[in-house]
Amino acid sequence: MIAINVIIGMVLIIIGLSFQVLGALGLIRLPDVYNRLQAATKSITLGAISIAIGVGVMDPTLLTKAILVAVFLLITNPISSHAIARGAYRSGVPLWKGSVVDKYGPALERKEREVKE
């Protein structure tokens, strides 16, 4: 007889793994840096959190540490993806050709002109 917490932990780990796989698939399928970052950040954050909590549930002595890991992932992952997106745009990585609108480019140019003057 397997304990109930082990089963819940395993389910959480399986959910996390499937999101990770979907995130990796998104990295390959989506067309440009920004879209790929979207898939990567969301799926991989939730996947990693889910796996951490799953391990914590399987072994309750690790649960508090797993929660701390989840909190730090939640804080740091969006920041790094934001930095990559901003850096990519500023170093001239173009948007995908199917993009419909770009409000950022003009605003950035306007701001830089203001700073120069």
Partner: peptide, 8 residues
Amino acid sequence: PIKPGIVE
């Protein structure tokens, strides 16, 4: 089904 863009 994607329709990407940057909005403000």
